[in-house]
Design a protein around this nucleic acid. Structure first.
Lengths: 221, 221
DNA sequence: AATCGATTCAAACGAATGTTTTAATTCTGG
DNA sequence: CCAGAATTAAAACATTCGTTTGAATCGATT
């Protein structure tokens, strides 16, 4: 049920998104992508110029809307708070909730996209790392600034580390329902797991964020 | 200062470990590995049979000692507790402290190895995923069983999820000091950051583990 | 010193990669 | 309906991959 025409470019975008997420950017070959899209190999270079151009198009298609939604939720929380402080859990929710929602969209390709995002920091493709680094740096600075205002009693460096830890837990949650089943032998996948993931993940993230700093009393409420 | 002879096999192991961690298994080519090791391309197939054999040797060299240390620390905590329950933070420490210590070894190659481990769940190489899945499944079951005994009031499924989240935060901590600097513009690397990583990470992990379950009071102390 | 196994080396292997080319085909506007 | 642009298609491009070959070199033993 895509809300766009199944042109050759769009079919290629869908196939590339899925294969990039499944196998990684380098391991997803042009033949495999175009074959899944029902198109010719040369179609990628014709429509997107190169494989990097295709990857860039795949990322742009969803990343702008995702990050705009994150910023919108953060701004909404700030205006709702008025002169009072925005609570840390609101900032965490503004950042992660839209991403979790997108990842829960299994049929529409949102899950594949988020898996691609989650594996990006480990992917060997240099272009992917550079592109996302540039694209997300402003977003990260906006959110770290929000954290700094929300938790002024905590050193900025500590907030950065905890934000980083949260990103890691989030990435594993998105990427690794398979890994979790493989490692533990317990099947935790399925529609139900995805439905409960937001509250499970948010509880963990907030617990980590509010944990007492080494040698200090607990920050936040 | 390696405590082993710098044979050709050992030089290849060191070079492969470093390059596998830097670029990923697939992206680390035989030419690059052997060139860094000061050896011929054919030396890999001569000494290790194949690239997968080399990868297997790289993993075996450190993984056995690491997991043995984890199990030893867990067993020590259990015997020290006697008939009383082992506290969750002891289990977390037994699992993550040896890995953090190994990752802090920048010169000896331990850091490269842990980065390879951390990126393994996202790496596109099938052999790596299969090998580590088989190698770690027993370890994971041992630790999840320990958690179940330590926190019997929490559903096993919830413990698994939180263990998974902890693995993600840990992986990012190991892999991503670079990512953190790139994303935020703040330099958090350096000897000092690695020295403070254990307490920072452990505080976060325990905070997440002890977070109140959705719709329930807080578990643990 | 001579021999024999172990090791190293340069070169080439077939298969796969992303990309380009050139011709055939489809679509569109007059 | 036909000219011309846009798109698709098959084939070959150069390059890189992991692996193999066969000769050259090294090292230890008799």
């Amino acid at each position: 049920m895509p809300d766009y025409e199944p042109d050759t470019p769009n079919r290629i975008l869908d196939a590339a998104e899925a294969l990039f997420a499944e196998r990684g950017v380098e391991a997803a070959g042009m033949r495999a992508i175009t074959q899944r899209a029902g198109a010719n190999v040369a179609a990628v270079n014709y429509h997107f110029g190169s494989k990097s151009g295709l990857l860039q198009a795949v990322l742009r298609r969803r990343l702008e809307r995702l990050n705009a939604e994150r910023l919108a939720q953060l701004a909404a929380a700030e205006t709702a708070a008025g002169t009072a402080r925005v609570k840390p859990h609101q900032i965490v929710a503004a950042f992660f909730a839209p991403a979790i929602a997108l990842a829960a969209d299994r049929a529409g390709g949102g899950q594949a996209f988020m898996r691609l995002m989650a594996r990006s920091s480990a992917d060997s493709d240099q272009f992917l790392r550079d592109f996302l680094g540039a694209e997300n740096s402003r977003l990260m600075q906006r959110f770290t600034a929000a954290f700094a205002q929300s938790m002024p009693e905590v050193a900025q460096e500590e907030v950065l580390w905890r934000f980083h830890f949260m990103l890691g837990a989030f990435s594993y949650a998105i990427m690794g329902v398979d890994n979790l089943r493989v490692l533990t032998g317990v099947d935790v996948d399925g529609e139900d797991a995805w439905a409960r993931l937001p509250e499970r993940l948010m509880a963990f993230l907030l617990g980590g964020l509010r944990a007492p700093l080494p040698g200090q009393p607990a920050p936040g409420a």
